[in-house]
Write a protein that binds this DNA or RNA. Structure first.
Lengths: 147, 147
DNA sequence: TATTGTTATACTCTATAACTATA
DNA sequence: TATAGTTATAGAGTATAACAATA
């Protein structure tokens, strides 16, 4: 059924738009922006990294990372530390404030997930995740073909 | 299970990020930007409208609409037509090129939905949509509470 | 020679505030 | 007085290209 398929895609996009709006609210409370939150989130996942590694992780240019890191340094969320073995590179490192923001992000994320999905029966939630997994795999294949 | 709930949210965001990347590809092919595509999509749904109505539909300021419409006029996708009864207002109206872009967008959207979901058994897809509906409803309620 | 990050420059999206024309 | 849209101004995110320091 194409209709149901389109409805499913529309609803995924709608939910994603709501999550995005919610992230904007987090932004305003924390004084961060979406792009800077993504960078902090990446630091939270992978630990302190070079700007080069952040550029790859976020899929943007190194120049862009320079600007984002400048903003996060100004707001006190990260510092630029010397790389221990490569004097060209810097290690972008969360400060205490940065770690707190990363922790808050994680807690909000988990809290939101619980509020959204804890009411769903386990079996249906498992099927939901399975469908998402399959869909993501199909998508990844489609994008490879086009690349 | 909090773990499963978090996994579900992560996967929804992942899929949404993939769709967003795909939209970027559409952009590059069509010479449009995401914001302008959203405006065109809105015109496709509701028909020609005033800039005020577009500002409300997209959730941005009227000033922002001025800029987006300027861009779409320059690229030949829309024209500003006089409003039949209110000389203050303009009717943003798709050109032939604009209509073609809207049609292409719709076709890509339906095509993508089919490729992503047509393989899912009808019953599981119905359950998938049901879970999305419930989740969207919960989210809407959460955001009202916080507003 | 290749890589890391920055400076220079430019474009898009977004916002607020003040203003003009019209209702 | 209120509304529709624009001009003025500003800031953030993004990109390419040229450059310095280092590998």
């Amino acid at each position: 059924m194409t209709d149901t398929a389109t409805a499913a895609l529309d609803k995924v996009l709608h939910l994603s738009s709501l999550v995005s709006t919610d992230l904007t609210r987090f932004e305003q409370e924390s004084g961060l922006t979406v792009a800077r939150v993504h960078l902090l989130w990446g630091l939270g996942l992978a630990g302190p990294g070079t700007q080069q590694s952040l550029a790859v992780a976020l899929g943007v240019t190194p120049r862009n990372i320079t600007g984002l890191v400048n903003g996060l340094v100004a707001s006190g969320h990260v510092t630029r530390e010397p790389h221990p073995s490569d004097r060209r590179a810097t290690l972008v490192t969360p400060t205490k404030l940065g770690h707190r923001a990363i922790r808050d992000l994680r807690e909000s994320h988990i809290d939101l997930a619980e509020q959204l999905f804890d009411h769903v029966p386990a079996q249906r939630l498992a099927a939901f995740v399975k469908t998402l997994d399959e869909t993501i795999a199909i998508f990844a294949r489609l994008m490879e073909e086009e690349a």
